[in-house]
């Protein structure tokens, strides 16, 4: 006769909970992987922060566009007194178009950067697993082919990582250029706001209307500046980390080749 002993619910749930709590920290890392992983995580964090800082760029560009339309209407109402403001608003519209273009490029760049990050994270995970395998196979009990296979795989991953980190460093460079583009828009918008304020002083009954435009524009410029400040700090850190990671990867590759 078969005796059926059921695992109690608590026991069973305990096992299942243990099964479902897969923690990465349980994995043992070695120093080389650790260093690369820590820096890569820092790099990805900085990239995320930079993109996050530019998160409201499209909204600001849209606000600026609406402001320039309203300013143009106000300039039309002011007749001759609004001629200079009309020219300034047209210039503002060009800046808005620049911002929209930068925004589009930034979106493409964001997709590329996140695709690269996922490749890097995958590579790091594989590298740490192969590093563990290297340690286990290098015990004097395995033949040379086993060690060669593991070393080959490890070095393939390292190559892939170095290449991806290279692409990532380029992406960060592109991001820095876009950030610089926004900076130029900011300083030009700032002088447009100043000029509109000057025109306002001579606009008589239209002064209040033009001053509102100039004040609102300053407000947007301040927001853009804040964005730039936040982003450029992240971009600068990302560039530094990207460069040091690339060097670390290249050094590791060098070590691998020396050992072969």
């Amino acid at each position: 006769m078969i005796c059926r002993v059921s695992l109690s619910n608590a026991d069973f749930e305990g096992l299942v909970t243990a099964m479902s709590q897969v923690s990465i920290s349980a994995r043992s890392h070695t120093q080389r992987t650790d260093r690369i992983e820590a820096r890569a995580n820092g790099l990805l964090g900085d990239c995320r922060r930079a993109f996050h800082a530019f998160g409201d760029l499209d909204e600001l560009a849209e606000n600026l566009r609406i402001l320039s339309l309203n300013a143009e209407l106000a300039a039309g109402r002011a007749g001759d007194k609004g001629r200079a403001v009309r020219a300034l608003t047209q210039y503002t519209r060009e800046l808005v178009n620049r911002l929209a273009q930068i925004q589009g490029e930034m979106n493409t760049l964001r997709r590329r950067t996140f695709a690269l990050s996922s490749t890097i994270l995958r590579g790091l995970l594989q590298m740490s697993l192969f590093e563990r395998a290297c340690g286990l196979v290098d015990d004097g009990e395995h033949d040379a082919t086993a060690k060669a296979a593991v070393d080959r795989a490890f070095s393939q991953i390292m190559h892939m990582l170095v290449e991806t980190l290279d692409d990532m460093a380029n992406s960060v460079g592109d991001l820095a250029r876009r950030a610089h583009g926004v900076e130029e828009v900011v300083s030009q918008s700032d002088s447009i706001a100043t000029n509109i304020a000057i025109e306002a002083a001579a606009a008589g009954v239209h002064e209040k209307e033009f001053r509102t435009v100039s004040d609102t524009m300053r407000h947007y410029v301040d927001d853009l500046r804040k964005m730039i400040d936040e982003a450029s700090d992240a971009v600068r850190r990302a560039s530094e980390k990207g460069e040091s990671l690339r060097r670390l990867g290249l050094d590791s590759l060098g070590d691998l080749e020396d050992n072969c």
């Binding site: 697993l129 563990r132 395998a133 340690g135 286990l136 395995h142 033949d143 082919t145 086993a146 296979a149």
Partner: peptide, 15 residues
């Protein structure tokens, strides 16, 4: 994977 690879390659070649 690391332990499995190490255990398996004691027995056979990955090839």
């Amino acid at each position: 994977f690391p332990s499995m690879l190490a255990a398996l390659t004691r027995e056979i070649s990955v090839d």
